[in-house]
Design a binder for these strands. Structure first.
Lengths: 221, 221
DNA sequence: TAGATTGTTAATCGATTAACAATC
DNA sequence: TAGATTGTTAATCGATTAACAATC
């Protein structure tokens, strides 16, 4: 039974949530470059947002700036880090060890942010026992027992589309709080489960749509 | 010099563009299941949108339904396919043949939609000559000459962050119209170049933010 | 102090939804 | 015909922006 007419939680607006990681990345860059100070105008300029939007976004969480000065880069970075929840460690499992799964398992960029892949599962018996990111690949029939035994914050689904909903149901009914979904299907989950989609094809189709829109506009000019 | 205060094109709203691939995927599923008919209400139900939104989205492009009946699945699918620009073939190149690059090159889901990777480039000389998705990996110093010689619709950037902007500049100054960016950096491009971001870390950080928001809400209840 | 820039309010802009006449 | 469902309009809701008093 799928959730219907679901209200987006009354919390922080989606747009703000989408921009938070972008601020985080940019602040990280600034800090690496040794910048100590940044204004909302500079932040906006660098990220193609308006200065007003930057200030408005940040003020959802507190007052991190100073009139006449702007923001201290490393202070703001610490704040954003906490806002994003990077002050703790997340245990993840990966289901599906195909090409995409392997790439996720060996992706370095979020390892050092506290996101740890604790176990990898696959149906393919040929893969079993192989290692990725320091994890042995385990048989998918063991998945349910695993999530019952080990608390898991995030389940990464990188299976073929046909298996995704089933895998999703298994982890959801065993209390996994959130899902990072790489398979190109819409997952049905109860309201309390968070799903973040990472749909390669959707993204590419958006691009091809906009390309065609552009070409059509160029033709008729 | 970065684009500033860029106006989103006056065309189709972003939200609609984001949902188009979702409709496409779902219609494909329905057709495979042998469904011939679907209403905006069903479409909405299956995808957690409202029926009104579905109708409103589709009516940006024409009148594809019929009062009292709904939409014919395969007709609507054809329409959406054309709207997305899937009635032609796209030539793509991939820069960066690391784990992620390899996964993209061997990703089956968009090959049969007309997106063809024509060439793969990498700096790593050890990889040169290797094959992925039927392409030989070529040295990145050859990239500029390549894009001058062969018209390219989409450049896929899957390099380490430090190289992304440079690679981006090369393809942009040689007329590549659009970029599908997998590296976690904000690319500076002229207004006429389209960029579609596929930021794994950003997506994961959005998830961790929402997880924390949820946990905070649960605590204080 | 004078200059700069915040945080926030009010005004604007855009997107979603509810409702319904049109009609298959 | 009666029932169903579209496409669209008007009403609502939410997000972005411009402007400015507060103040470092």
């Amino acid at each position: 039974m799928s959730a219907r007419g679901r209200k987006k939680d009354s919390g922080i607006p989606q747009g703000v949530v989408s921009r938070l990681p972008v601020y985080y990345r940019y602040l990280l860059e600034l800090e690496e470059q040794g910048e100590t100070r940044v204004s909302s105008a500079q932040l906006g300029e660098g990220l193609d947002f308006t200065a007003a939007q930057v200030r408005s976004d940040l003020s959802f969480f507190g007052s991190f700036g100073q009139q006449g000065y702007g923001y201290n880069v490393s202070d703001l970075l610490k704040q954003v880090r906490n806002i994003l929840g990077l002050n703790r460690v997340y245990s993840m499992i990966l289901i599906g060890a195909g090409n995409l799964g392997k790439a996720i398992a060996s992706y370095e960029n979020f390892k050092h942010m506290g996101f740890k892949i604790q176990a990898i599962f696959d149906v393919d018996t040929l893969l079993l026992g192989n290692h990725h990111a320091g994890c042995v690949i385990q048989p998918v029939w063991y998945l349910e027992e695993y999530v019952q035994k080990y608390p898991t914050d995030i389940a990464i689904i990188a299976t073929p589309s046909s298996a995704s909903q089933e895998v999703c149901d298994i982890v959801v009914r065993n209390g996994v709080a959130s899902i990072w979904n790489f398979s190109p299907v819409h997952l049905n989950v109860p309201d309390h489960v968070l799903v973040e989609h990472m749909h390669l094809t959707d993204s590419l189709l958006r691009l091809s749509f906009r390309l065609n829109e552009k070409w059509r506009a160029e033709e008729s000019s």
